[in-house]
């Protein structure tokens, strides 16, 4: 296993030297079209911005049609890359097959979902997934209304719930991880597509409970209290480390880009994807996400290399 990694790393270095050589001699040009998830957008935007410094004549355009909307265009061959905050669904796979589009899935970063309460909430310091499920599952609607229904020692006060809108990938992911079924939850919580509204809501209500992407917590640490989640072995709070090493389960998720196989015939797309995998670690941190372990990027560069060669 480690041997394979070392070989992989060596191959990687050679590869890099090779492309650097071509950089100096011939500047690439063309357009690379990316569309899809607005969650992944900031990373791709950052990569596109930096790529411009290396290859100023390559125009990278990025849309925000959402993961589903992005795959629709991707399966019609209208885009070269697709941003996705969840893996491709069977229906979308079929749509790609119908149009003879094959692709490669690449993980580019992690996103952690943070569970939060008001800073003056001194009774909660952790949740188990079962407790979160008890609070959020559809049958909790109208029934689980007070803190002491979750644990008897907690106060006899109403619990006020806040969460992202039901159209968001964040909501889909949370419900899948906690309730067990994507898109299934109680309906009587305050939902907002704007996470800033959720921050305000939780920060203004002592008996509140909510969840959203970890980047919003990072910007509002003083207004909110972060709650650890029991992963089956121990209580873990989301952080750069715990999301990266996989101990913050189940509330962290990978973010993806999908590469169209016909697009890799264009050298600028190959160059861009390699650049993406080289820099996603650093840039995803800049925009509030969590990088993969660096060996994951290396391994994916290898599989991308094979993918390019098999589609020549």
């Amino acid at each position: 296993m480690s041997l394979a990694l070392i070989i992989g790393a060596c191959g990687d270095k050679k590869e890099k030297k090779g492309t650097e050589g071509t950089d100096g001699t011939a500047a690439l040009s063309g357009t690379i079209k990316v569309d899809g998830s607005s969650t992944v957008f900031p990373i791709t935007e950052a990569v596109a911005e930096e790529f411009r410094a290396v290859q100023p004549k390559v125009n990278v355009t990025v849309g925000v049609s959402g993961t589903g909307g992005g795959f629709k265009k991707f399966s019609r061959g209208e885009t070269n890359l697709s941003n996705a905050s969840r893996p491709i669904k069977d229906k979308e796979k079929e749509a790609c097959e119908e149009n003879n589009i094959t692709y490669l899935e690449l993980e580019v970063a992690y996103d952690g979902l943070a569970v939060l309460v008001h800073p003056e909430n001194d009774w909660v310091d952790s949740f188990t997934v079962e407790e979160l499920k008890k609070i959020w599952e559809p049958s909790a609607q109208g029934k689980i209304m007070k803190w002491n229904q979750i644990r008897p020692e907690w106060p006899n006060q109403e619990i006020h719930l806040f969460g992202p809108g039901v159209a968001s990938g964040t909501y889909d992911y949370f419900t899948e991880a906690v309730v067990g079924e994507s898109g299934s939850s109680r309906g009587d919580f305050t939902a907002s597509e704007d996470d800033h509204v959720l921050v305000q809501g939780i920060a203004g209500d002592k008996y509140s409970l909510g969840f959203f992407g970890i980047a919003y917590y990072a910007e509002n640490k003083d207004k909110l209290k972060l709650i650890g989640v029991h992963n089956g072995e121990e209580v873990v709070k989301p952080s750069l480390e715990t999301v990266k090493n996989g101990t913050y389960r189940p509330l962290s998720r990978p973010l993806f880009i999908y590469v169209n196989s016909t697009s890799v015939a264009s050298p600028e797309v190959v160059e861009f994807v390699n650049f993406y995998l080289d820099n996603a670690g650093e840039l995803s941190k800049d925009v509030g996400y969590i990088p993969l372990p660096s060996e994951n990027y290396r391994a994916q560069k290898e599989s991308f290399k094979t993918f390019v060669e098999s589609n020549k």
Binding site: P42, E45, R52, N59, T61, G63, V64, E193, D195, Y216
Partner: peptide, 28 residues
């Protein structure tokens, strides 16, 4: 949401101010 060039002819892709605003508002 991200276009690194201004349109040069009517068939070019584009972004507009309200989309840029919407995009920024949703950033943490």
């Amino acid at each position: 949401a991200y276009v690194p060039f201004a349109p040069e002819n009517p068939l070019d892709e584009f972004s507009v101010l309200p989309i840029q605003i919407f995009n920024w508002i949703s950033r943490p």
